[in-house]
Amino acid sequence: MDTPFGERKSDAQRIAFKSVDEYPEAPISLGTTLINFTGDWRTFIPVVDDEKCVKCYICWKFCPEPAIFIREDGYIGIDYDYCKGCGICANECPTKAITMVKEEK
């Protein structure tokens, strides 16, 4: 599956170095965070009500992951593989279009 940002989640690979010589000299980007499915952490899940959404994209700006993307119809979508359920989007939304609901797993 592709991420809403165009990268393929299946391409994400955990890098494991076998010997010290394989490591880069300095601790710089050892790989991609695409492999971190932070959606696992979630207790509450954000649910969007498109009827209330005014497409201001404040939630998109504030999401720390970022897990919020803009759909083709202009409304927002949430990539639940990475949404960690922090609730920042719901807190910031000026029209209360996002509600945090306890997630049943």
Binding site: A16, F17, V20, Y23, E25, A26, P27, I28, S29, L30
Partner: peptide, 20 residues
């Protein structure tokens, strides 16, 4: 070639960077 500097080093990787 964008990079992140000072990435997280888990117990599996931190040690090698100290050795370097």
């Amino acid at each position: 070639n964008p990079i992140a500097v000072g990435a997280l080093g888990t117990p599996a990787d931190y040690y090698e960077f100290r050795y370097k």
